[in-house]
Write a protein that binds this DNA or RNA. Structure first.
Lengths: 135, 135
DNA sequence: CTATTTGTAACCATTATAGTTACAAATAAA
DNA sequence: TTTATTTGTAACTATAATGGTTACAAATAG
């Protein structure tokens, strides 16, 4: 399974979205997640690099970089999860075996099919939907 | 990302399917994957428990438990991967915060949506399709 | 009764995560 | 200018799962 980085990031984005102008700090967000502010800042740093939020070393600078309707979970996922295939594929197969020689391509194809479905689903859900669900 | 247990299992099933009557051992399959036979047997044990293959301590007893057209990748996945959610969800949130109190349910819902899409895709692919791709 | 193979237990090394401490740099406010 | 606050990041630790390996009892064929 994927790490909690993705879901914690959604939590962070929700907190920021709902702060709505009022100054919000990594310390405060950490309080809602019951964890460390450095961990939050680490994720916020990635979210900033992906242009999902704005931050600065000053009070009140933290906010969404665009409306919650325009932030899809696909973007959030890609911002914080390492670039990997969904299923690990054993690379060192025996090329002298007909199956070993060809299975890699077949499995990569399976992976792509599933992964594009996941991306499609995540693309269809936006931060605004999450906020709606939180009401 | 998920471990290679799933994709290695597909490799194993393909080897068994293509052995087609001819005796096949875990040692032989391990040779195609370039790994250890105990590791293969560990996975085969799970595949057997899921009624996907038949095995016995005798030569020639290893085979598919049903036609390759009736073995979906969804079954294979469930046979070897631990029962988990696709995305880890941080459980210990602050219940005194409106977001912390409700985000868990919202995230579980997101998880279910994605996971059922994955399952749908995996259900639509069968071992027979893999064998076709190997040709 | 010998050889082969399965099924499983018990390890070990590696890797990523989650959590933590610490601190320089930026900025606001006194 | 000085002080306090906050970000951004580095460094470190503990934990857990994977992937690989050795070993061996039990089952079975010859």
């Amino acid at each position: 399974m994927y790490s909690s980085k993705f879901t914690v990031s959604i939590h962070i984005l929700s907190m920021i979205a709902l702060s709505d102008g009022k100054p919000i700090t990594s310390e405060y967000i950490a309080g809602s997640i019951n964890t460390n502010s450095a961990l939050i800042r680490r994720l916020m740093s990635l979210l900033k690099k992906a242009d999902l939020i704005t931050t600065q070393t000053k009070v009140g600078a933290t906010g969404l970089a665009k409306p919650s309707e325009q932030i899809s979970l696909s973007e959030v996922f890609k911002a914080v999860e390492r670039e990997t295939t969904l299923f690990a594929i054993h690379e060192d197969t025996n090329r002298d075996c007909p199956v070993g020689a060809r299975i890699g391509k077949v499995l990569a194809n399976v992976n792509d099919q599933v992964q594009s479905q996941v991306d499609l689903t995540l693309s269809s859900i936006h931060l605004s939907d999450i906020l709606e669900g939180l009401k």
